[in-house]
Design a protein around this nucleic acid. Structure first.
Length: 672
DNA sequence: TCCTTTCGTATTTTT
DNA sequence: TACGAAAGGA
């Protein structure tokens, strides 16, 4: 506690009412949350089980849990909930399952599952163009995030087209229910709906949770806001931490105005600002402050640090995008030697994923080791999805989606015709596809060999299912992997043995994760059935992929969005151009403010040096386009920018210096 | 069932 | 331009 500055400790000790902590970038907000949990337990007589701290990412939750553990006696932590919004929702749903009308084994659909489902719904009776799946999926998600039911959506629809969209939403909801499945948004939505309908249940939860802490509050959406509000009731036990300047997910339904909404909802709200930054040099903070001042603000914040002013910010312009990436690569090589630091001290940030391609090319060319985060995640890999399909079916035989995914993977000679007949039969008998396989009348609608294949599959799965429930679930999973002969199928199908090898490793990694998570949950004395573990995995709650065995001294490549919450000694941000950093579509939508926040987040990742680059020309969709410098460059303090490649003073000085250098080396040569 | 060709589309993606 | 998805052909 004595390590905290006065503002921080005020935030920790204030418990007389709802508290909003406006925590600027790098101001030690995680410390505040973890210390506050410790304070509540050690000094205020709260029990661990009465406190919930909610974050957005599993990573943040894990880090927080870790730090609380180092602060508070293990016994006292018991029942302490430090988790993501979605895990909190899942916990509530699990305990109120029967009231919600779900059967015990339910599945969680991820985005691609939901996507496939919507696509199918459109395909079946498509008045709507099927390439609008993405748009519709977005829409459904937004509806759910704003607590708009299918009926509401229907009522709000002002045109025939909108009515059709609402109708799909309706059918999507029904389909999920039929599969006994939930999507990510449901994990928040259903608890909220339940609490609205059943005050008695809400009261029970309110009694058990007495203090709530919410991280990254600017990223909450309508449903999450409502969940927090209803859990809190009219009590005082709330601390939220957020930074309106770091709201960069509005396009995904986040409502940064939830921060100012707090003032209205809780008149006795107390506000604490954390403005001391422990990360960056004064120069970097000045630039960040000046830039973000161009946005309107409800709460004014001014970051400062006592780490010295530091180096000026360099802005480099190159003739084209290739040269830009090349320059970054060589700059890093140079800077690394001159400053004697490691590759991993560098990060290169960019607005769009596509920008990483040229970058990778150049880094390879100059032999700069790098890692790129983002791209296809572990969970979107085919083999992982397949395995999760099996696992989902093991805990929820009603999950038709999972059934369809894996019924013919590996090949079991069960094709579309068979499945169609099975589907019709299942529909008429009101059974899941899996249960339909076992129905005595099924053989009347199918040719004998198709029928045998289905029953064989069904019986095999049933054995596994029972073993998972009554015996050792891990053993059942391992048995499933070997008996499905998935590995053989991978080798048969893969373009090269290496690919198959790698995929199989992912399968083993998944099973390993399963094991680990199971042990973890058992340690924490939580419900440790296969179902619980798989749900965790479906919520992406697993340890990072093993940290690349080699010490991984590599330059980090990532999008600005992905960089939020991270920090690096030396940061390069590429593509400071109009239409790219304020992105074109954002300009068109008139939402430059969020882009400015994006730039703000990017800048505040840097601890010591910051380099911004842009290209004068860029090869785009086949032909060259001329690029103008980003307006954000002009919005920063010009006196702290060293502009290179703009034909200005700095260039002349540089040329002069370069001239002197060549002259000196010439003399040196001649002298010899 | 797999491979080829063609077509359309290019912002960000915590769970 | 370059990639992924979808459709068409062997």
């Amino acid at each position: 506690m004595n390590k905290l500055n006065p503002r921080q400790s005020e935030a920790v000790k204030y418990i007389d009412g709802p508290l909003l902590v406006l925590a600027g970038a790098g101001s030690g907000k995680t410390s505040v949350i973890t210390q506050k949990i410790a304070y509540l337990i050690d000094q205020c007589g709260y029990q661990g089980r009465q406190i919930a701290a909610v974050t957005f990412t599993n990573k943040a939750a894990r880090e927080m849990k870790e730090r609380v553990r180092s602060l508070v006696d293990k016994q006292k932590c018991r029942g302490l909930l430090v988790c993501t919004f979605h895990t909190l929702g899942l916990n509530i749903i699990r305990k109120e399952l029967s009231t919600l009308g779900f059967k015990p084994g339910f599945s969680i659909f991820d985005q691609s599952d939901a996507h496939a489902l919507i696509k199918e719904l459109l395909y079946k009776d498509s008045d709507i163009d099927s390439d609008h799946v993405d748009m519709l999926q977005n829409m459904i998600s937004k509806w759910k995030n704003e607590l708009i039911s299918p009926e509401d959506a229907m009522a709000q629809a002002s045109s025939g087209g909108e009515q059709q969209l609402a109708a799909v939403y309706e059918r999507y909801t029904q389909a999920l229910k039929a599969y006994n499945a939930l999507d990510f948004d449901d994990l928040i939505l259903l608890p909220v709906q339940l609490f609205r309908k059943r005050p008695d249940i809400l009261e029970r939860w309110q009694r058990s949770l007495r203090y709530l802490l919410v991280d990254e509050y600017q990223d909450t959406n309508g449903a999450q806001y409502e969940l927090v509000r209803s859990l809190l009731g009219d009590r005082k036990g709330l601390t939220v931490v957020g930074d309106d300047d770091q709201s960069i997910y509005a396009w995904r339904g986040a409502r940064p105005e939830n921060i100012s909404q707090l003032n209205k909802d809780y008149p006795d709200l107390h506000v604490v600002k954390l403005e001391q930054n422990y990360r960056s040099t004064g120069c970097i903070l000045k630039a960040a402050n000046t830039l973000i001042d161009n946005n309107p603000h409800e709460f004014n914040k001014r970051l400062w640090s006592d780490m010295g002013f530091g180096d000026p910010i360099r802005v480099i312009r190159t003739p084209n995008d290739e040269a830009e990436c090349e320059r970054v690569a060589t700059e890093i090589l140079d800077q690394r030697l001159r400053m004697g630091c490691k590759y991993k001290d560098f990060a290169i940030l960019y607005r769009g994923n596509h920008q990483s391609r040229t970058l990778e090319l150049k880094l390879q060319q100059f032999q700069v080791p790098y890692t790129i985060s983002g791209g296809t995640s572990f969970f979107s890999r085919q083999e992982v999805k397949d395995m999760l399909g099996y696992l989902r079916l093991m805990v929820n035989p009603n999950d038709d989606n999972a059934f369809l995914r894996i019924i013919n993977t590996p090949r079991r000679k069960i094709g579309p015709t068979t499945l169609e007949k099975l589907g019709l039969f299942a529909q008429s008998e009101e059974l899941s596809l899996f249960d339909a396989c076992n129905h005595p009348n099924l053989r009347h609608v199918l040719p004998p060999d198709a029928h045998t294949r289905l029953t064989e599959f069904h019986d095999w799965m049933l054995v596994l299912l029972e073993q998972a429930e009554n015996d050792d679930p891990i053993k059942a999973v391992e048995k499933m992997v070997t008996e499905s002969e998935y590995e053989g199928w991978l080798h048969q199908n893969a373009s090269s043995p290496n690919v198959a090898e790698r995929r199989m490793q992912n399968v083993h990694a998944l099973v390993g994760q399963l094991k680990q998570t199971l042990e973890w949950l058992q340690e924490d004395n939580e419900d440790a059935g296969l179902q619980a573990v798989i749900n965790r995995l479906l919520l992406r709650d697993m340890l990072e992929q093993q940290e690349e065995e080699d010490d991984s001294d590599r330059v980090q490549l990532l999008t600005v969005h992905a960089s939020k919450g991270l920090e690096y000694p030396h940061v390069y941000i590429i593509g400071w151009e109009e239409e790219l950093l304020p992105h074109r579509s954002s300009i068109e939508e008139g939402n430059v403010e969020e882009e400015r926040r994006l730039a703000y987040v990017a800048i505040t990742r840097a601890k010591r040096t910051l380099t911004l680059t842009m290209a004068a020309k860029r090869k785009q969709f086949g032909d060259w386009t001329t690029c103008n410098p980003s307006r954000f460059l002009e919005e920063m303090p010009q006196e702290d920018l060293v502009k290179i490649g703009f034909g200005g003073e700095a260039d002349k000085a540089l040329n002069k210096a370069r001239g002197r250098e060549t002259l000196a080396s010439l003399k040196d040569l001649l002298g010899r």
